[in-house]
Structure formats: C-alpha cells, structure tokens
C-alpha cells in the first residue's frame, strides 16, 4: 500500500491532536469525578462559577475529541487505507467492523448525551446529573477508540 506524503502529514497531525484532546478530556473527567457530583452538586452549578466552568470544560472536551475522531481522523484513516468513505453512519459501521470503535450504537448514544449537555433543554437537575454521569462513564469509550486508531496508524507506519 502506498500512502502519499501529504496523507501522512494529515494523519500524523490528527493523531497528535486526538492524543492531546484525549489527555485534556481525561484531566477534566478526573477532576469532575473527584467532586463526586450528585444532585446537590448539580443544583449548585448556577451560583458556582468554578463548578459551572468545570462542567463546560468537560462537555466541550468530550465533544471535541468525539468530533475529531469521527469527522476527521476516521475518514482520513479510511481514505489512507483505500477504503471507501461515505456518510457518517457508513464510516462508523466500518470502524466497528475494523474494531476501532466498540459499537455504533454506543458511539451515537454518547453523541446524543453530549448534545443534551450542550443544549440546555434539560431543565431538571435530575436530568443533568443522569446525563453527566453517563457521559463520565462514556469517556472510556472515546479513549479506547483514540488508542485503537492511533495503534492502527502506528502499524501502518511500521509497514510503510
């Protein structure tokens, strides 16, 4: 397989970016988990800037990593290996087959969760807490995908 210099540049740059994004996400997730968020914690968000900013940082880092992985790195990796790229769903199904993501279902559930945490249609603290705890549990899904795609890229480099 012949991979052009231009493609390598793009791939290695995206690999670096997602590694950094993953690292940042881990940091905020750990900070947030250390707070052991419960209903009282969520209810205090309105008047507590530090907590509010911590939640915002978590949600945006979560979203950024997921976006870079599935909008950028995944299609670039598929293109580099001469796979056909298609719609977001096509690419995710391919990633599932290749073992890069656990399941399309779990991946899309995390996307939904993130949308709920960004848009403030959640008016009750119960809902925000449920979404937050589920998103914290989901961090691992994103990290694993990042690690698997990075490992695949390294195996390509080794062959190259």
């Amino acid at each position: 397989m012949k991979i052009g210099a231009e493609t390598w540049l793009v791939l290695t740059r995206l690999a670096r970016i997602t590694e950094r994004e993953n690292h940042h996400l881990q940091r905020t997730a750990e900070r947030l988990e250390a707070q052991a968020p419960d209903l009282a914690w969520v209810s205090s968000l309105e008047g507590n800037d530090e907590r509010g900013e911590m939640l915002d940082a978590f949600v945006s880092r979560f979203g950024r990593l997921q976006d870079t992985l599935d909008d950028k790195l995944l299609p670039a990796l598929l293109r580099a290996t001469l796979e056909k790229t298609g719609t977001q769903l096509d690419n995710l199904l391919r990633a599932e087959k290749l073992g890069w993501i656990e399941s399309v279902q779990a991946w899309m559930e995390l996307r939904e969760l993130r949308n709920r945490l960004i848009h403030e249609y959640m008016e009750s603290s119960d809902d925000i807490l449920d979404a937050l705890l589920a998103a914290l549990r989901g961090v691992e899904v994103l990290s694993k995908a990042q690690a698997r795609m990075a490992a695949y890229l390294q195996s390509l480099e080794a062959m190259h």
Partner: peptide, 15 residues
C-alpha cells in the same frame, strides 16, 4: 433513567 432511554432510542433509530 429517562435520559439514557432517549439517547439509546435516538441512536438505534439513527442506525
């Protein structure tokens, strides 16, 4: 867990 149920259903319908 209503939120989880909503996300699960939205994801399976997307697929």
């Amino acid at each position: 867990n209503r939120i989880a149920a909503e996300c699960r259903l939205a994801a399976s319908l997307f697929i």
